[in-house]
Structures are given as structure tokens and as C-alpha cells.
Design a protein around this nucleic acid. Sequence first.
DNA 1: AAATATGATTCGGA
DNA 2: TCCGAATCATATTT
Length: 346
Amino acid sequence: MDDQPRLMHAHAAVGMSGHPGLSQHIQDNTGATDGDGRKQDIGDILQQIMTITDQSLDEAQARKHALNCHRMKPALFNVLCDVKEKTVLSIRGAQEEESPDAQLMRLDNMLLAEGVSGPEKGGGAAAAAAAAAASAGVGADNATEHSDYRAKLTQIRQIYHTELEKYEQACNEFTTHVMNLLREQSRTRPISPKEIERMVNIIHRKFSSIQMQLKQSTCEAFMILRSRFLDARRKRRNFNKQATEILNEYFYSHLSNPYPSEEAKEELAKKCSITMSQVSNWFGNKRIRYKKNIGKFQEEANIYAARTAVSAASVSAHGSQTNSPSTPNSAGGYPSPCYQPDRRIQ
DNA sequence: AAATATGATTCGGA
DNA sequence: TCCGAATCATATTT
């Protein structure tokens, strides 16, 4: 393989002198029909080939030219190709591997699904997530994060595409180069078009395995990005003051049984512009932390107790007095905000 | 920078 | 499936 450039250059001079491509020789094999002098001819040609190395380069070129012009050359070429096909190529013929293809498909599908590859702009999943979050909550609050996420996603996508393009270009360049080389050489060596095709396939396989690595690492990068994005702990935001107030109000006014029902959770979630599971988390955290250190929460408890007392008073002043279901025990709970461990927390 | 607060996750139990 | 408990990872305060 390493002496190919030399061969090619050496041959270029001959090739330039108006020889048609080899394939043409093969196709119109008009000179190979007469059979009697054939063996003799072939013997001659072989003899000439064997002695060609003894001659000077110029002489060799001349010989080569003469050989190429010989009427039996196409036939000989075919024979040599056949022999080569039977001996060498058949050995490494039937080892096709299909599993990388399947894996490549998987990676492709994933990249497509995640909006990394495929149609540009606003990759599906990301866009949907962003839209959902935007409509669900405080837009400006997490808009920066989403744009950050989007920016990183586009960055990954960009790198992926440029790399992919680079690989493709390199692959094409290399393939055409090799093909030209082989075509050139096929004038002097028994290289059939089939073999060239095979070589091209081999090259493509190699490059596609490189491509697969690229796709794999892109997938990995994307997974990391997404896990970062989805792991809420990494980007925890405190609830806004209003939401915290609403939650605390409910908590302290239901201190004897701070377990909001499904409906109550739903309503709280709506009021606070957070999800229901966030409400559940909040109450879970609140209960355990309150229980752990009641003293620390006394002040807070008193504040909210007083507040609900006021609101209850104003309600009763209005006259309705529907034995408010939201103030079981906390109306005056002062020094120890009468949190009764009777229910659950203990 | 250290301490504390806080939202989320994980895990075992009922 | 929900809860308490422990823990994580970040946010905020000191």
C-alpha cells in the first residue's frame, strides 16, 4: 500500500497519453475471442511482466504502454481478477457485522428524538419542556435557566453537526482519493470495479464507526445536560414570598392536622403557582422540621395564628360565622403554639 | 467563608 | 401510595 503514490505517479505519464479507462477494455472484449494463440500470448505477456523489473524506468514505461495496448490485455486482466477474487477476496468476504448498524440506529433515533439532530431550532423535547414550565409558573423566574439550557443544547447540536460534516467530508475525500488511486492502478494491476466497491464499503464502515463514536459522545453530553437540567436540586429556587405565606397560613391554621387533602393541595398549588408535589414536599418538610424544633417556629406560628385569628374575626364580624373549618386550635396558641402531637407527628 | 434555610430526593415502613 | 426520616444540593444569611 505504501508504494502506491509512486506507482500512480509513474503511471500518470502513461495514463495521460490517451488511454481509455480499463472498464472500457473489459466491456468490449473483442480481442479475446480467437482461442488458438491465446496460451502463447499470455505466456508472452507474463514473460514480459516478469522481466519488466529488470528494465530501466523509461523502458518499463514503454513496455507498460505496449502491454496496455496489447489486444489480449483485457482478457488477461479478467483472468487475473478472477484469480484474485477466488483466492484473496473470498477469504475475507462474508464477515459482515450488523450489530453496529442497529446501535447506530438507536443513537440516531435518540438524537432525533431529543432534538439534537434532525430539523434545526427549538428541538421538540426542549421546546415542550420550556413551554410547559413557562405556562405553569413564574415565567421570568426560570426563563434564564431555560435559555441557558437551550443555549447549551444548541451548542451541543452545533458541535455535533460541524463534526459530522467534517467526518462526512473527510470520508468523501478519502473515498474519492482511494477510488482514484485504485482506478489508476487498475490499469496495471488486476483490480476489478467490484473490488473497488468493496474497498469503498470498508472505508465507509470505518468512518461510520467513527461517526458512531461522535454520536455516542453527543448522546452522553446531552444526557448529562438533561440530568443537570432535570435534577431540580441543582437549581433549587425558593418559593416566592407570597407562596410561602399561603403555605404557612394553611399549615399553622391546620396545625392539629397539617395534612392537606388532595383537593386542598390542588388549591394550594394553584394559589402558589407550584405543582402539587411541591406542595406535598413543602408540607412534608415543614412537618418534620416543625416537629424537630418547635421552639424555633414559635414566632412564626404566633404570627400566622394571629393573622388567622384576625381574619376569622373579620369574617365573624361580617356575620356569616360558618364555624370556620380552618381554625381548629390555633386561634390563641401563644407560648407553645399548641401543636398537639395527637394526630401524626410524634 | 461558615452557618443556616430550604426545596427535592431517597428509603423503609405501614 | 403516602408518610417520616435522613440526606443532598443549592440558596440565603450571618
